[in-house]
Design a binder for these strands. Structure first.
Lengths: 227, 227
DNA sequence: ACTTCCGATCCTTGA
DNA sequence: TCAAGGATCGGAAGT
């Protein structure tokens, strides 16, 4: 069951009703100190209509609100409902760009476009699900596998770093099979046309990477998402 | 002086010209392994027109690109040019919302709306300024983080028939490396959970397929291959 | 991304 | 013990 805390002020938009109707969603309405929806631990969503978003840049309300949210939550997401560029305003393009950039580059706040309240509700629900339960599956990164034989072999080789369709064909022609290529030393990979020392090294490294050597890495990933 | 690395493919959009004209900007154009603009030490910007953004969800290009970017950069920002909701598509609203949510909640990727190329250029320039002057000077914009990792190994294995994200992980866990899996006999492949006799046979066939055996098997297929 | 569909895998049953 | 059945999972294809 997914839990969402919503600020009561969002009541009139119809979003609360939409969220409440979603299956597997346990909606709790109350007064939040900041933001509009808490979709996960340390993750809050602020909803703003395009007009209000732009206005809030001018009167500095936006920066204040974001700063406040960041005190309580690690991750802040702003859903902008409507089209910013359609908003009639005296503000310069530079000011808008500055605000957008500041939000993301300095504050690490993410923006999401939404066309209307219904879409916003859908987004909030999906974000809550993702934040609390994850995807539930892994995304298949490789599309449309070909049928057996040469195409298949080339497709497999295309998974190697630095290898696209062209190099895949060259490697296959040179080594004769995927298996032979997998057992090749870097120096031998170099013999295939189109494969240089650098690519050869990366390929060899990828193929021979051992689970046993797996160390914890990617603090970078956390840093990137933790803002 | 702010430095921006731009991918040469962005040339025709007019963004490069706009960036080059900006004062205090040192623009360098070249081939980037991923993303379109490097605006800071560990920050890359990917530009996508709304239509292309939606299309890239369907064919999984988006996920692959983002995954690649995250291998090299801590922070990834996608600038969406145009209005996603205006894009005519047969995809469900749920799928779009799912993609937007996934990007931000799971991957920690930021999104920015932009109305046109000029605004995009302005955004890129501003982001670079914020990233470099706001977060401390850093000339070394090269994201040189070699990345031999589990992800890459799994990605390679995902190319095998009957192997998706789940089985790729299981195979890698069982055999320890791509190379070991490539040298496995069908009976051994069967030992890995999730791999039965049938899938094992198909995998073995694909890996050991030999160019030498490339004779008449399916005239129709050969005709279509254009080789 | 999501949904639907299909085939393979795996587990239980029962002889 | 093994064969057959059915529930489940994962991959492929389409929107």
């Amino acid at each position: 069951m997914i839990e969402i805390f919503a600020d009561m002020r969002e009541g009139k938009s119809g979003i609360l009703q939409a969220l409440a109707q979603m299956p597997n969603v346990n909606l709790k309405v109350g007064a939040l100190p900041c933001g509009d929806f808490v979709v996960g631990p340390n993750m809050v969503v602020e909803r703003k209509e395009a007009k209000d978003f732009v206005d809030s840049i001018k009167d500095r309300r936006l920066f204040e609100q974001v700063a406040k949210c960041k005190l309580d939550y690690q991750r802040v997401i702003i859903i902008v409902e409507g089209d910013i560029s359609k908003v009639r305003t005296e503000m310069s393009k530079e000011a808008i760009a500055g605000a957008l950039s500041w939000l993301q580059v300095i504050e690490g706040v993410s923006l999401t476009p939404s066309s209307n309240a219904a879409q916003t509700a859908l987004l909030v629900g999906t974000m809550a699900r993702h934040a609390q339960e994850g995807l539930g599956y892994d995304i298949a990164l490789r599309a449309a596998k070909p049928k057996p034989s040469r195409h298949m072999a080339e497709f497999i080789l295309e998974g190697l770093p630095g290898v696209g369709p062209t190099n895949a064909r060259k490697i296959l022609d040179h080594f004769g099979s995927v298996r032979a290529a997998c057992n090749a030393m870097p120096i031998e990979l170099t013999k295939a046309p189109g494969i240089g020392a650098k690519t050869a090294a990366r390929i060899h490294e990828a193929i021979n990477w051992e689970v046993a050597n797996e160390t914890m890495e990617s603090p970078a990933e956390l840093a990137g998402s933790g803002l």
